[in-house]
Each structure stands twice: as C-alpha cells, then as structure tokens.
C-alpha cells in the first residue's frame, strides 16, 4: 500500500480509537451504575414543571440567511487555499486574479450588510 493511502488508513484507525474510548467509558459505567427507571426520570426537563406540548416544537430559524452566506464564503475558502499555497510561483498574476475574486465576494458581503441582513432580526 502506498504511503498516501496508509496515511488515510491511519485516519480511519484513529477515528475508531475515538469510538472505542467512548464505548469503553460507557461500558465501564454500565457495570457500576444503578438502573432504576421510573416514569418521572424519563420526562424532559422543563424547569420543574410537566413538559407542555410537542417536544419538537417549531423554532424560528433566524440564521437562515447566515447559513446561506456561510456556504458562499466556505466555497470561497476552498478556492483560496490552493492559491495561497502556490502564490509564490503565481506572482503578480495570481495576486491580481485573487484580488478580483475577493473583491467580488466582499461586494456580496457589503450588499448583505447594506440590505440589513446581518442583523439578528
């Protein structure tokens, strides 16, 4: 197996170590902890009173716009990383290219700002 693939196999193995650690902790706990379930223990916590209504109540997702803008800028970051690593060989050409790219995205941010989308409504 090549060195490259071995690196990624290591990633999978260490991820497994994480799962293992969590399982060992929970497994150890199940040996010593008590288990006396009552209906009251299975209730949700709502500051001491009985839970009211549906648990998955509708919430106002106010950051919908922020999530959209996050996608925009995250994609931008994907493009900037390879450029940043090779900037020395691109020289002035690469710099001007990326300046235009960043300027367009900054314009998008500025537009959202002026449209008052960046306020937490």
């Amino acid at each position: 197996m090549s060195e490259f693939l071995r690196n990624w196999l290591t990633v999978a193995v260490i991820g497994g170590v994480g799962v293992l650690l969590a399982s060992v902790f929970l497994g150890l706990g199940s040996l010593v902890r008590p288990s006396r379930d009552t209906p009251q223990k299975g209730m949700n916590y709502e500051s001491g009173v009985d839970p009211q209504g549906d648990m998955w109540s509708q919430a106002n997702i106010r950051y919908y716009v922020f999530a959209l803008m996050f996608v925009l800028f995250d994609v931008e970051a994907v493009f900037i990383f390879p450029w940043a690593a090779r900037l020395e060989s691109y020289g002035m050409f690469g710099l001007v290219e990326m300046a235009i790219f960043i300027a367009i995205l900054a314009l998008g941010l500025f537009y959202a700002w002026r449209k008052r989308l960046l306020r937490w409504i």
Partner: peptide
C-alpha cells in the same frame, strides 16, 4: 463520580 450516575434517556 460520573461512572456511577444512572444512564437516563428521555422517553420522548
């Protein structure tokens, strides 16, 4: 201490 705590999962 945490090892000895009961493992509670809400019914819902």
């Amino acid at each position: 201490k945490f090892l000895q705590k009961e493992d509670l999962i809400p019914r819902a």
